[in-house]
Design a protein around this nucleic acid. Structure first.
Length: 571
RNA sequence: CGGGAUGUAGCGCAGUUUGGUAGCGCGCCAGUUUUGGGAACUGGAUGUCGCAGGUUCAAAUCCUGUCAUCCCGACCA
């Protein structure tokens, strides 16, 4: 490919709408252009990178036993009625009608479609396990698309679905995908962590998110500083914090005027926040009141809380009336004195506190010298891990401190069990001739997001620094002065030698000044730049510049090829 | 969906307060000189001032509505 024919319009100015670095650089490097909110065109350079990521994914999916297929983007509502998600999916689904008034959606995911595809053909355990995947655009009408390719409304996704005859088989498929994902992100040159994730509504199965570490990421994850435990902030399990024993003082009610939040209370009573117990009152979508108690400096983890509540799907802050009806007093709550039958959930750390402060369920009053183990009625409360992880909390595996970091969720692996196969009647006959639902798993990778994540992780003030495996071109040959025929001819020669050698190379033969071309090369981020200037023509010396390190090597005409190959292998 | 901001040339922006011929930088086109890190000079092209209504002799500017984009939050497999 020659740069003089390449449609790669680069920009000196950063478009005002691009807020994060990956978006800015992709835009400036002429890789993407926006068509509408959350929708992007990929230009030749951007598309080459996408294709390279896809190719790595294909190779690993195939190696793990996957078979590539292609399903329609447009999906009939009937399938989604079967699974119950036509109603449940909500506004995030792009819906439309055809000329006959039949309803369709633009696929946000393909569980229904694949289950329907497989249920008619898979009749026997002998056809299992089965893994099918596709790489295709998905549509989700995000409330707030943002950050360029990071959260867009139309995006490229690899989605694989596994089908097994039993839980053991499903777990084997899961592990194969987990391993394949690790290889994919490693091959893409990314620093990532597989983190344990909450799988919410589906429950019971495994789920990991493959999170590429980046400060701009939307996901917050907790990583152990010693072992390899890593979990999403919502999932991170926390053991109860055991306080040293101390002399137990008797429960006492004190007047605490105006102390309706924890900081005011701690200041007023001159106690550390870690000696206070705070309450958050929720109401579920089924109108049940839930009172959650944690240590004053801890935060309630709503996902953990929700998982404890059978049948509830959502939490919102409770109304004052509901709190009062249960005997509580907003701003001054405690489990002591709440009406029996109210859902009171206490974080397990709280049960190990001594001589703490908590509300008295009346205005401007608190209890102090509260020892929950003694003063709370265990019959009326549920004790569980309901708090949100914080920097420095103990790792649930090894006890070392956890470190909070941010990342981009580039992929997820998920066991589905029989959720869809049961709802949609996807069954097979087992060895005993008994009809059973298929056990499923689903595994997604955001291709564009992976590209954005790679840039977030690999850039400097001059532009992108592509990992070799996913660079649009591995090497750029620059004819410093393309108007000089000797130089251009020399560069052409080098270019064709590199091509013959199988190097993925671009020739920058544009009749621009050298500075312009160098700036563009840096911005676009080709891993290696081979510079052909007067020194090449006159002395036969060829320069090779490594984008990542800025290192410049000077080679002879005979030696440059070996050097390029060697440098590429190191990258 | 709540809060905030912004829509003026391909990109970045000024002009709006106080209504009076549409501007600047980069880019683009032509020419001359230049030529190893975003060249200089000369000349040139490019706008429904987001859109629709209204007020006015006159609207980028004031009023109403609407659409779009971005940020924060909420939400989210």
């Amino acid at each position: 490919m020659r740069a003089s024919n390449l449609y790669a319009p680069t920009l000196r100015n950063t478009p005002a709408e691009a807020e994060i670095i990956s978006h800015q650089l992709m835009y400036r490097a002429g890789m993407i252009r926006k068509s509408a909110g959350g929708m992007y065109n990929f230009l030749p350079l951007g598309w080459r990178t996408i294709r390279k990521i896809e190719q790595i994914i294909r190779e690993e999916m195939d190696a793990a036993g996957g078979q590539e297929i292609m399903m329609p983007i447009l999906q009939p509502s009937e399938l989604w009625e079967e699974s119950g998600r036509w109603a449940a999916y909500g506004d995030e689904m792009m819906r439309m009608k055809d000329r006959h008034g039949r309803e369709f959606c633009l696929g946000p995911t393909h569980e229904e479609m694949i289950t329907a595809l497989v249920r008619d053909e898979v009749r026997s355990y002998k056809q299992l396990p089965l893994m099918l995947y596709q790489i295709q655009d998905k549509f989700r009408d995000e409330r707030r698309p943002r950050f360029g390719l990071m959260r867009s409304r139309e995006f490229i996704m690899k989605d694989l679905y596994s089908f097994d005859k039993d839980v053991e088989g499903m777990n084997v498929s899961y592990q194969k995908m987990y391993d394949a994902y690790s290889r994919i992100f490693t091959r893409c040159g990314l620093e990532f962590r597989p983190v344990e994730a909450d799988n919410g509504a589906i429950g019971g199965g495994h789920s990991h998110e493959f999170t590429v570490l980046a400060d701009n990421g939307e996901s917050s994850i907790a990583c152990c500083t010693k072992c390899d435990y890593a979990a999403s902030d919502e999932k991170a399990e926390l053991a109860a914090i055991i306080e040293p024993n101390e002399e137990l003082l008797p429960l006492e009610k004190v007047a605490t005027p105006g102390t309706d939040n924890i900081q005011k209370l701690a200041d007023y009573l001159q106690v550390p926040v870690t000696k206070t117990i705070k309450a958050i009152a929720y109401q579920t979508d089924t109108e049940e009141l839930v009172l959650a108690f944690t240590r004053g400096d801890h935060e309630v983890n709503e996902v953990k809380l929700l998982n404890l509540l059978e049948g509830a799907r959502e939490l919102r802050m409770a109304d004052e009336e509901a709190i009062r009806a249960a005997g509580g007093c907003p701003g001054f709550m405690s489990p002591i004195g709440i009406k029996a039958g109210t859902h009171v959930i206490v974080d397990h750390t709280v049960m190990h506190m001594h001589n703490a402060v908590t509300g008295a369920n009346e205005i401007d009053a608190h209890f102090r010298q509260v020892t929950p183990e003694r003063d709370f009625d265990r019959q009326l409360i549920t004790v569980a891990d309901i708090r949100m992880v914080q920097e420095g909390d103990a790792c649930p595996r090894c006890g070392a401190p956890l470190h909070m970091t941010r990342g981009i969720e580039a992929g997820q692996v998920f066991t589905l069990g029989t959720k869809y196969s049961e709802a949609m009647g996807a069954t097979f006959l087992d060895e005993q001739g008994k009809e059973k639902p298929l056990l499923m798993g689903c595994y997604g990778i955001g291709v564009g997001r992976t590209m954005a994540a790679a840039i977030e992780q690999n850039n400097d003030a001059d532009g992108i620094i592509w990992p070799r495996a996913i660079a649009p071109f591995e090497v750029v040959v620059v004819a410093v002065n393309a108007k000089n025929e000797e130089q251009l001819a020399y560069a052409e020669e080098i270019y064709s030698e590199l091509r013959t050698e199988g190097v993925d190379v671009l020739l920058d033969d544009r009749k621009e000044r050298a500075g312009v071309k160098f700036k563009d090369c840096d911005l676009i981020g080709y891993p290696l730049r081979v510079t052909i200037g007067p020194k090449a023509v006159e002395e036969g010396t060829i320069e090779i510049k490594v984008r990542r390190t800025g290192e410049v090597l000077t080679c002879t005409r005979d030696a440059y090829m070996a050097k390029v190959v060697e440098l590429l292998q190191e990258l």
